[in-house]
Design a protein around this nucleic acid. Sequence first.
DNA 1: TGGAAAT
Length: 694
Amino acid sequence: MPKNKKPAGGRPARNFDPSYARKSGGPAGTTTGSRSPGHRGYRPVEGDAPKKARWNADERAARRHSDEPREQRAPRDDRYDGGAQANRSERPAYNRGENRTERPAYGRDDRAPRGERTERPSYGRAERTERTERPAYNRGENRTERPSYNRDDRAPRSDRGERPAYNRGENRTERPAYNRGENRTERPAYNRGENRTERPAYNRDDRAPRSDRAERPAYNADRPFTRGQRIERPSTGRVSSGRDDRAPRRDSNFDRPRRDAGVDKNFYPNRDAKGNFTPEDDVVLERLEAQATLAVDVEGISFSDLGLGGNIIAALAELGAPSPFPIQAATIPDVIAGKDVLGRGRTGSGKTIAFGAPLVEKLMENGGGKKRAMGRKPRALILAPTRELALQIDRTVQPIARSVGLFTTQIYGGVPQNRQVGALQRGVDIIVGTPGRIEDLIEQGRLDLSEVTITVLDEADHMCDLGFLEPVQRILRLTANGGQKLLFSATLDKGVASLVKEFLPSPAVHEVAGEDQASATIDHRVLVVEHRDKDRIIEELANRNEKTLIFSRTRAYAERLADQLEDAGIRAVSLHGDLNQARRTRNLAQLTSGRVNVLVATDVAARGIHVDDITLVIQADAPDEYKTYLHRSGRTGRAGKVGTVVTIIPKARQRRMTDLLGRAEIEADYVQARPGDEIIEELAGRMTNAKLTA
DNA sequence: TGGAAAT
């Protein structure tokens, strides 16, 4: 066991101990590896460090397969100490960041190069392919301290073919992520003062009960819904089954107890009670009472009738939207009228234009003269939950904005910020981005939202989920007082109530009648399979000539599946948070362009992402939440096209799946399947071919 | 348990 807990456990403690720096009195040891700046990761303090140098191939191999207890692996948190710590005291907000430090995923690419960051855009790093060959990586004990790191198998990424197929999966099991639990118990370091007190949510206490779960009756639909009554959804203490409870309750919208939106002190303690997701949490919240627009109502209506100007209309036509979809017809006038708007339109129904076009129109009306002023402050903000979605929204909004001389810029993480900052300095009108980087730039004083008078939350209900809500609230509070707010989602529900209460005094609520997910042009199927057949069946399903999107629950499985498909001769790429942004972008582009037909993704791709002509969505793991089901399946059947969604489940999951489909209001056939069955041919769309050749 | 979101 190369790493002793002492340095590992001690280092973070030191970093979190404000007195330590003083005690140690100098560069040596104040921060990890700081004594010799030229040597990344060099930690003179650790006397035993040198012996831990780099592992040779055998050791690594042995390591990979070892089932040595996890606590013997070094906690990896020490990596972030410097920056993270500094920030942390100032921004309790960023606690989430800690999760991140515990996730190998994130840092992986930019971590090592840390010291050189300014010189190297993280992108370059991503590209390098011979990681294993680079002596650079033994730089110091970094290596020794996180031996379980996959680093090595990461590299091969780009040349998947050369790699032994499955080791990746195994390494994964060694991912430091798993240390999480022990770090927790081992490291008193974590009660570092105020953070602790400010975010009780963080304390892993809510984790603990986890283990109890097994003792509870698993998916007992009859069980009173106790957890949900905690805080988030008090008004909907419902049993999580059946669709009867879906009926809109006209008088009860947004009537949940107010929860001190502005007062964090009161808010935080409550979060303890919220706990993590459990299946019972997947309740259908009442729909918002909405003004329903019928599709027929908008027939013959033009964008011009809705109040949009000529340039914008021309841009829309260019984008392939000559006339408004129902959701657009419903919301555009209200947005232009300056109202706060809640808009629900099923996946692929054209929500981006529904908020993007009138937003630009509004800015035009108000903005008048100060267009193009150097360094002008942004006046509109569009927030999205993933970088890919932010990018995609910008691809739609930018041409609309440019048609009237307005500028947009993307502000999201995972890429160097220089360009983003440069754009801000030149002056932009519309920001499209994700919460993290936006807050980061605000902290840095490079972004000022005080003149933002229109804010859009795309996938608004998701933006209200644990982990997103607070950053979103903070950001919204930094926008102009009384500014217009637009919330859109295919699954907009009362989960957004807390935001509505604080930011949308009297919103107009729109949906399109009869346009729920169930009426979409999607064929839903459930394949009940033996676990051992699962991968094989996925392989057979994905072996087709049209675009296929496969969802998995974890990043590791997404990666493994992509590898497996490649090994089977089916070109496939993956998309998940373990990849650096360059690769994420590229892999998605490969599906979009048709260079590959199969993308295996986590739920990062579940919402909003539009790729033309995905005709089959395979859920390799069934979703936990009905909303997730709706969003995932919404990647196909877009804009009226047909598509198939196949959810693969083990026998034991049938009941739970049925409950979920009920909440989603979706009807699906269940079929038992084994590799080679005709049903698979049919679902893959190979039936006709098979018959032709027969 | 998991996933996304900053460095």
